[in-house]
Simulated scan of single mutants.
Amino acid sequence: MLTGKQKRYLRSLAHHLDPIFQVGKGGTNDQLVRHINDAIEKRELMKISILNNCLDDKNEIAEELAEKSKAELVQIIGSTIILYKESKDNKQIELP
């Protein structure tokens, strides 16, 4: 579980990142989760964009993606989700 200070730090790092994945009208699926797992292991911090044609609730999508990828949900801002997961092999971010 991340503290408030750690979340603030991660939000500041994520500010300049571009979303890597998009969730559309198909919603989430196992293939998307698998790709997120691979990418988050390399990057540790990522943004995911939810498109306007997605009918599912963005909070439910964020919780589901965080749970299935075993990542921490840092923030949901607008239609963007920020996820963090400490990497086993490519540790780059040192949390305060």
Rank of each mutant, 00 (worst) to 15 (best):
L65W: 09
I40A: 04
K85V: 14
K25I: 05
V23H: 01
K88M: 14
S49P: 00
V74P: 04
H16D: 05
E44Q: 11
D30M: 04
I50S: 02
Q6I: 10
I40Q: 02
I77K: 13
N52K: 15
T3W: 12
I36N: 00
K91Q: 15
S69E: 12
L83W: 07
S79E: 10
N59F: 08
V33K: 04
H16C: 09
R34C: 00
N59K: 13
L95V: 13
Q22R: 14
R34S: 15
I77D: 12
K68Q: 11
Y84V: 09
N29L: 04
I81P: 05
I76H: 03
V33F: 04
T80G: 04
L2T: 10
N53I: 01
E64H: 03
M46W: 01
I40F: 01
A62K: 06
E94Y: 06
E67T: 09
R34A: 07
I20H: 01
L83H: 10
K85F: 10
T28Q: 02
C54A: 10
G78W: 10
K5E: 14
E41T: 01
F21K: 04
S79F: 07
G26Y: 02
K25Q: 08
K68G: 00
L17F: 06
E67L: 14
G27F: 05
L73K: 09
L51A: 09
D56T: 06
E60S: 14
D18G: 13
L17N: 03
T80I: 15
N37I: 01
S79W: 09
E60R: 08
Q92R: 15
Q22K: 04
I36K: 00
A62V: 10
D38G: 00
D18M: 12
T28H: 00
D56Y: 10
Q75A: 14
A71F: 03
I50N: 00
V23C: 11
R8Q: 09
H16K: 12
L73T: 09
L73A: 10
L2V: 07
I82Y: 05
E67H: 11
I20L: 15
L10F: 12
L2W: 07
L13E: 06
E41K: 03
M46N: 04
